[in-house]
Design a binder for these strands. Structure first.
Lengths: 209, 209, 209, 209
DNA sequence: CATGAATGAGCGTTCATTCAT
DNA sequence: CATGAATGAACGCTCATTCAT
């Protein structure tokens, strides 16, 4: 195993454990055991437990960021279509990174680590800017209404998705998809959630003559 | 201070600390110090740290439950009016109990304690039943559409509120309410959030001819 | 064993170990083992290893201080007699507290702990004041010469004693006192050292007409 | 940098750190960092931390030894002149090697490393022999008294110097030499200490008719 | 009923050292 | 010849819990 691979490997196992047991509920010993590395390696690679967490955030945050600037500037796509693409992008990221998303949620609730708070506010800003840009474009083109509360809009999307992730298994059972494979279920879930959010956004954005 | 008062006092301080630092991030010592009681008192009263947490959930859950059965049966109020009352009730509870709501959120993410999971699923069931009852009534009366995904609906409400609570201070600043008192801000927030959710619910529920 | 007795007991064992292996060379585990107490008790009683050290210094320093103010004011005793009494007092304290004296020596060399440095400078000041008072009295009475370097004088006493303590066993062997008991040897050593230092002080202080 | 230079460089940095923080208080990591060499280099060059310490002692001890045998045999210089030269030689070495002298002091107090103890007793023997030779010469020439306690004499010198080194900065301030450069102060200190010790030696050695 | 004292287990971290390259 | 990576052991300390009083 190469150096960066071990790095990645430790981080992945830490992510899993942090998601399942929380940051404070997970010991370095557990992480080392799960990653099949020596206990001292974790501090050796990351410096400390705290810095491992921060490294995880740095890594994942770069993946979570929505990089669709070119799309937003595209004049051939309508604002509503762009909204839909944005929602789909967001959903893909969150559903693919559920472990991390849970960790982030707890960090948002507790706000203990300032470095991590910065990461989180950065990504929130990233989302907000995407949405704001879109909203302004739509308003200029008279397809979106005025007086749109962007933060409420954003929180409706992120909140709904959060709750669906947290209650994922209950929802699966509720919809009799217990026997379906994870990937199939996730695809289905993404479609359903996407449609739901798009519908809400349409209502909240649509220009009323 | 009477015994039950001490009980309550310890639980309140524990709630505050669990919300701010997480269950594992909070030590019994801290709770005892914050509550100005002897360290051994906590285990003495509640048995263990885990049981203190469970006692907290038991206590708070009974407060969080929506007890509006009589209202739901009231034939003089329209389904949409009932939906609005339900949303207002929910908002009041959550905004009044933000500490506890944060704790619950982390427990939902981590799902470590089975007793607590039961409490949470109980309250979810409670909400679901309220909403289902309402939805069915509205459908019978042909004011609500068919094919309503109750869980999606519920999660949209709880999720949006969750996100707004987590980003409370950012939203406050965003709306230039930094100087407003907490209680005034919370009243304002409740109104705004309520209107927002009611609007979404209306769209998602309203019968389309 | 009573509470304060355990305190004292732990401190004594710590003193022994610190003297033999140095502060950093001694682990809390060793101290706990030597004192036959639980490892956690040390931190429980003293807060930390550092504070244990400081508590030891606080305790011992109060014993080491020369409390002979009344004697110094006594008009019926000549300055030279007072010098001799002072030297005897100092010798008694150091020979009785050799473990502690060694610890102090290393702390003086390394100057890491500021709290301890304060303790040490306090006791140095205590000695210096005793000697200065005496010297001034002797000078006024024209039995001591002028231009006496008090610090050099003091360091000659403390330094000579230090070296004799450090080379105690070599000196014992050198003087064929290997078979003598510790207490007898110490009495003998004290006499010899006392005479030596008194002689030096006499030369350095005596008024030259 | 050549190999022997690296050797020397590491040893110098180790000496500095050992003096300031003690042997156990200094980690190989710190030494490597201070010497700007790879962590593994230290063990690689010296075998172990302990052997580095011993190598340091071996190196410094050879420098500390008084090599004035030819002078001692010189018939044209009086015993008292030789005593003075001996004292000056000793002072020069100690003042030039204060870091090492502090390390040695702690090792003398703790007596943990047997190899180092041997080095220390060797140098003590070296000093003792110089002084003994001188004393015997002086006694034969009837300029020194009989019954001279060589070890007490020696410890008076080494002890006084030790204390002056340990309290160097206090003494500097006491004599208002705070603004003076280190080298000027050291020269001044050496002169003053030399005179003081020579005076004491004269008293303790001089033949009394 | 209440509590100071005590305990064994485990925490995050650092240590001196080794070894493959 | 030199070094980054790795390791087992130990570090100081805090944990939740228990128990005698």
């Amino acid at each position: 195993m190469r150096n960066t691979e071990k790095h990645t490997h430790i981080m992945e196992k830490a992510e899993e454990l942090f998601a399942a047991k929380g940051y404070d509920g997970t010991s370095i010993r557990e992480i080392a055991r799960a990653a099949h590395v020596n206990l001292a390696m974790v501090s050796y690679y990351f410096g400390s437990k705290e810095k491992l967490m921060e490294a995880l955030f740095k890594e994942r945050m770069s993946l979570m960021k929505l990089k669709i600037e070119s799309l937003l500037k595209n004049e051939n796509i309508s604002p509503f279509q762009k909204v839909e693409i944005l929602i789909d992008e967001y959903l893909t990221k969150v559903i693919d990174r559920q472990f991390f998303y849970k960790i982030m949620l707890c960090e948002m609730a507790q706000q203990k680590n300032k470095v991590i708070l910065k990461f989180i506010s950065d990504i929130k800003l990233n989302y907000a800017n995407m949405i704001r840009g879109l909203v302004e474009e739509g308003q200029q083109k008279k397809v979106f209404k005025k007086d749109i509360d962007i933060m409420l809009l954003m929180n409706t999307m992120t909140g709904t998705v959060t709750q669906m992730i947290l209650n994922k298994e209950v929802y699966r059972e509720f919809n009799s998809l217990k026997k379906t494979s994870d990937s199939v279920y996730h695809t289905w879930l993404k479609k359903r959630l996407g449609d739901h959010i798009k519908k809400i956004f349409k209502t909240l954005l649509e220009y009323e003559s």
